[in-house]
């Protein structure tokens, strides 16, 4: 066997091993999550776990493991973030791809993408020292660490993803459609709203889904900015504790192998399936939009 064959074989196995191990590690993490998480249900009934709003594992005598308020908090903060980030993100994307002069687009798009690189702890810090007091001031509250604060911060964090992916989607709409619309005497605004954006819709949905995925899994920012009260939130001015924040807060102190310990894994497992669903939806729409690009 000559040298060339040996190098060829070596690299073949090298890439095979790295590929397989990456998938293997992810799979192992999932298995660990599932094995630990599922043990919760030896002590806690499935209906209590999903339907009770009381999460109080360290209560004396009768601990409770209901995750409903955590799930609702996570969803609420994420949806709040999307209400802010989706219109803003699509607007920015439409501006960058359709209206901005080329030099401005070439400068602004990288700037927006750099925003994605701001560490979440810095965003959380900003929430505590600036946004919190501001919210407390504006709405006359005692504390500004609440769901609204978390939503605004998550919106800022999801924005780069939404802008960047929707901008690509809008820009890849064939110019044939736009020209056809202009040739029918349709102005720029209506062409954008009636032709370009609908044609880019699957890409835009994918962008929003990726944004949701980013927001729902975010931990440090919400941990710092939302106040973390264990309660069923009544409004955006209430302090909330999301699933991610709950795991981060409690996992460091929980005794190994207790129901509480397994319960936190179960929360992680639920979170995993939620973000899996979001990502699969995103993937579904991204595929549609790739096919459409041809």
């Amino acid at each position: 066997m000559n040298i060339r064959n040996i190098t060829d074989k070596f690299f073949h196995y090298f890439f095979l091993v790295s590929g397989v191990s990456a998938i293997g590690i992810l799979f192992a993490i999932f298995v660990m999550l599932a094995m630990n998480g599922l043990q919760t249900f030896t002590d806690v009934s499935i209906s209590q776990f999903f339907l009770s709003t009381r999460w109080n594992p360290s209560a004396f005598g009768e601990p409770s493991y209901g995750i409903l308020s955590l799930v609702v908090s996570s969803i609420m903060v994420t949806l709040g973030a999307m209400v802010i980030a989706v219109p803003l993100g699509i607007g920015t994307a439409a501006y960058l791809s359709e209206i901005a002069p080329p030099f401005l687009r070439e400068t602004l798009k990288p700037v927006v993408e750099i925003l994605a690189g701001i560490p979440s702890v810095v965003v959380g810090f900003f929430g505590i020292v600036f946004l919190g007091p501001l919210i407390a001031d504006v709405f006359n509250l005692t504390s500004g660490l609440n769901a609204l604060n978390g939503s605004i911060l998550l919106a800022i964090m999801a924005l780069p993803t939404i802008v960047s992916v929707s901008e690509d989607a809008i820009r890849s709409v064939p110019k044939d459609f736009k020209e056809a619309s202009y040739a029918l005497g349709v102005n720029r605004w209506l062409t954008l709203v009636k032709i370009t954006l609908p044609a880019a819709s699957s890409g835009i949905v994918a962008a929003v889904m990726l944004g949701i995925g980013r927001a729902i899994g975010e931990t440090m920012t919400v941990l710092m900015a939302t106040g973390n009260a264990l309660q069923m939130p009544g409004s955006f001015f209430d302090s909330v504790r999301t699933m991610t924040a709950n795991i981060a807060i409690e996992l460091g102190e929980v005794p190994f192998g207790t129901t509480h310990y397994f319960g936190l894994f179960a929360v992680g497992l639920v979170l995993f399936f939620m973000s899996l669903a979001v990502n699969l939806t995103a993937e579904h729409f991204t595929k549609k939009y790739r096919r459409y690009r041809t």
């Binding site: 044939d176 459609f177 056809a180 040739a183 005497g185 459409y292």
Partner: peptide
């Protein structure tokens, strides 16, 4: 108004999606 009075058919058929 001009474009509504003067229509254009393109080289490549381009119906809207």
């Amino acid at each position: 108004d001009i474009r509504r009075r003067v229509g254009l058919i393109f080289q490549k058929p381009n119906p809207f999606p």
